[in-house]
Design a protein around this nucleic acid. Structure first.
Length: 271
DNA sequence: TACATATGATCAT
DNA sequence: TGATCCTATGTAA
């Protein structure tokens, strides 16, 4: 379940669990055995997130993890009982005195040196969850593209951190139709979209899940009262009524992913 | 058992 | 645009 918020939250949690600790590193599945051997038993010096990429540092030896669509971390505190045995799909296992962490299904789990990391970062756009992402650079990139804003939001060269849920939800919150050409978005609308995405992603890190709905729109007063199926405005809600206006939510395919929108709240020509 | 599906991304055509 | 890689889960057969 990884968009940028998940990755940054994992970095924060794993930093707390692992940094300055000696870590037993293994690959029960066997597909990262060589790399694990290099890191095993050494003291972790840092954990960083950039977009949807994670970097675990043992000095200049870096473990690069990208969860892709299916990757998952599981965390087990030893104080709560013995951790489960790894499964045949446990690519990576990290163990300290206090916790055991299992990773399965990642797209990437590899050793990386600083040069390769620089090259990777160089081909990625600003991280919306970074300290001071360059909005001007992203707006300039939009100006140069005719493709749909819904497509550009998932283009890693333009910006990183947004995934398929946040793209649909943020465009709804901003009243922007996903098919709107990127170069037709005004600076004012871009600024709104930019701030919306940053704010939503930050909220996602804090809550460790995606919740975009204003409680008042579903008749409750606090975020806490939202049920699991009241968290989102449009994502996976095709055929259901818009929470704001009642119009039926529509869905289609945009850059090989499902996109969702309210035809009334996100009129085609609004930019 | 099989299939569809998923909050990702790249590469070939 | 389609094929491909990675895994778990729910539903259908």
């Amino acid at each position: 379940m990884p968009e940028g918020h998940t990755i940054h939250r994992l970095a924060r949690d794993h930093r707390k669990d692992l940094v300055d600790r000696s870590v037993t590193v293994g690959s029960p599945q066997g597909r990262f055995t060589q790399g694990a051997a290099v890191l095993n038993g050494r003291v972790l010096t840092g954990v960083d997130a950039y977009g949807k990429h994670l970097f675990y540092r043992w000095g200049d030896d870096t473990l690069h993890v990208h969860l892709g669509l299916f990757g998952r971390f599981m965390r087990y505190e030893h104080a709560r009982g013995a951790p489960p045995e790894p499964t045949p799909t446990t690519r990576l296992r990290l163990i300290t005195d206090a916790v055991t962490i299992h990773l399965s299904g990642p797209t990437v789990c590899e050793l990386m040196n600083p040069v390769a990391e620089d090259a990777l970062r160089a081909r990625l756009g600003p991280d919306l969850l970074g300290r001071r992402p360059n909005a001007d650079a992203v707006f300039d990139a939009l100006q140069r593209r005719r493709s749909a804003i819904g497509t550009v939001l998932l283009d890693q060269r333009v910006l990183v951190g947004v995934g398929n849920v946040y793209r649909a939800e943020a465009l709804f919150l901003c009243g922007i139709h996903p098919d709107t050409p990127a170069n037709a978005i005004s600076r004012a609308h871009f600024d709104l979209l930019w701030e919306t995405l940053r704010q939503q992603l930050r909220a996602g890190v804090a809550a460790n899940r995606i919740v975009t709905v204003e409680p008042g729109d579903v008749g409750v007063t606090t975020r806490r009262q939202l049920t699991e199926d009241q968290r989102l405005y449009v994502y996976r809600r095709a055929g259901e009524p818009c929470r704001r206006c009642g119009t039926t939510i529509t869905s289609w395919t945009l850059s090989a992913r499902a996109i969702y929108a309210c035809p009334s709240c996100q009129p085609e020509q609004a930019v």
